[in-house]
Design a protein around this nucleic acid. Structure first.
Length: 472
RNA sequence: GCUCCUGUCGUCUAGCCUGGUCUAGGACACCGCCCUUUCAAGGCGGCGACACGGGUUCAAAUCCCGUCGGGAGCGCCA
């Protein structure tokens, strides 16, 4: 391995606990995870919950659930920033002592009221007396970073060199008046403390990076490598968010998507491994690298996800599919435990038959229903299209008679019988085929009818046809 | 407004670094045909893009500059 002489790769995923794992955040997590796994490094989970008013324990759980569902495991953490407040406060003090930061006695309100956006704060050059005066008054103070002159330059692994002039960076707050650290202080402190070697995150952090680099320097720490990945946009070309519909990974699960399909979809945005197809986690780990990835913002394309999902479903064997189908059918009340033991073979054939045209796991419910229950809907359109032929009244009973007298009720046998009967009566086999499909399944679309009938079984097939005519 | 990032078919992308092999390749979607008991799947074909304008060069999607478009950031949020 070429990289074995290098320092071990350490990356982290550091979401703020907003309640659910957003699809964009999931992509960030995935890229970090893949990078760590590719280089046999460590993947660290950190929860950025310093803003206590907006954070809660339950919220972090949603994120952890999402990661687990995707199959992204972490090696360290979760580390909760809210439990390390003292640590950040010490860092802030250290920066003040080093002269890299200063106390600011302004309130957010009067600073805003001062009008214009200004990069420097008057507090950076307060006289000793003024400071003593403020202290005596017991004014609360924040710690503000003193941005040095010049320019900040760094080499982004995806974007290349990015340069920012310091005049465009304001003296940002490190420690709030209430003693809580701001993002810039906590990320940098933690990234140093946790020996993070590569910071892989969304493009929306590009303009934060120069500030953070300045903090690294002020603290005398090594600067990690940065990789800013493009943001997923909605159809309106705005950053994907809640108002674009399903954006939580768990919602995708509930809508019938498979984790591997979601992972492939996310990975194949701004990264083309070559051919479009489903890659296993192992393959992705192997092929994944960060540089020379496209840097434009991709638009979320649900059609592509669905296609990927459908491909995956039809490629998976029945055994792999079983847990997902079981969950789905349990939710719709169609599941019985026999499917896993006594009727295992039969059920497995059913899944095998249905999976080929299912794009979502949720498709199994409506499509399996006629096989599992006698209570299934009859599509009106199907009835009027295929059951209105008068000849059926005479011919279908004959066909059923044939069914009841044949030996095995296998797909091949069923086909032979249907075709023979059709020939004898001088009608197209399609007449029977369509009519049977509608009667037995209530639908005008299904897998091959002969196999369908075999699975439904002779008894039910005959019963359903008879029942249909009795109702007329 | 300021700063930064970005711009190949409707969408995701290959190609760009290391100019010629690009009359720009693949995939999703869409359309047509084949297969066929329906729908998918599969096979075949079609539609469809280098944002624009200047340079550099024998030669530019590829390098440089400008314009325009898109996105993000500009909090005592993360």
């Amino acid at each position: 391995m070429i990289y074995s002489f290098q320092i071990m790769v350490r990356v982290r995923f550091a979401p703020s606990p907003t309640g659910h794992l957003h699809i964009g955040a999931a992509r960030t997590a995935l890229y970090n995870w893949l990078y760590a796994r590719h280089y046999e490094g460590r993947f660290i989970l950190r929860v950025e919950d310093t803003d206590i008013s907006r954070s809660s324990q339950e919220m972090s759980e949603g994120i952890i659930k999402g990661l687990s569902w995707l199959g992204l495991d972490w090696d360290e953490g979760p580390v909760f920033q809210s439990k390390r407040l003292k640590f950040y406060q010490k860092k802030a003090e250290e920066l003040v002592k080093r002269g890299a930061a200063y106390y600011c006695y302004c309130t957010p309100e009067n600073r805003k009221a001062s009008g214009q956006w200004q990069t420097r704060c008057a507090c950076s050059s307060l006289s000793k007396e003024k400071i003593r005066h403020y202290e005596q008054q017991g004014l609360k103070k924040a710690v503000r970073f003193k941005v040095p002159g010049g320019e900040v330059r760094y080499k982004d692994m995806i974007h290349g060199t990015i340069t920012t002039r310091s005049d465009n960076i304001e003296d940002f707050v490190l420690l709030r008046r209430d003693g809580l650290p701001t993002y810039h202080l906590s990320v940098v402190s933690d990234d140093i403390d946790q020996k993070i070697t590569h910071v892989i995150r969304g493009d929306d952090h590009i303009s934060n990076t120069p500030k953070q680099i300045l903090v690294y320097k002020a603290l005398g720490a090594d600067i990690p490598r940065f990789a800013h990945m493009s943001l997923i946009l909605g159809k309106d070309r705005k950053k994907l968010s809640k108002r674009h519909g399903e954006t939580s990974v768990l919602e995708f699960r509930d809508k019938g998507f498979l984790p591997l399909a979601v992972v492939n979809f996310l990975a194949q945005m701004s990264w083309s491994p070559g051919k479009e197809r489903i890659y296993s986690m192992e393959e992705m780990k192997e092929k994944f690298y960060l540089d020379r990835r496209s840097s434009g913002n991709p638009i979320f394309d649900l059609d592509k996800l669905e296609w990927l999902n459908g491909q995956l479903i039809s490629q998976m064997d029945e055994e792999e599919l079983l847990p997902y189908v079981r969950e789905e059918l349990k939710n719709s009340g169609l599941w019985v435990d026999e499917f896993e033991n006594k009727q295992r073979k039969w059920f497995s054939r059913l899944v095998g038959l249905l999976k080929q045209r299912n794009r979502r796991i949720t498709d199994f419910t409506p499509r399996a229903r006629p096989f599992l229950s006698d209570d299934y809907p009859m599509e009106e359109e199907a009835v009027s299209k295929y059951l209105k032929d008068e000849r059926l009244k005479l011919l279908l009973p004959k066909l059923i008679q044939d069914f009841s007298e044949c030996g095995d009720f296998t797909a091949e046998k069923v086909e032979t019988i249907i075709r023979k009967r059709a020939e004898k009566e001088g009608v197209k086999a399609a007449l029977f085929i369509h009519a049977l499909r509608v009667i037995v399944l209530g639908m005008k679309v299904s897998p091959g009818i002969f196999e369908v009938l075999e699975l439904i079984g002779r008894r039910k097939t005959i019963k359903r046809v008879q029942a249909y005519f009795e109702m007329q």
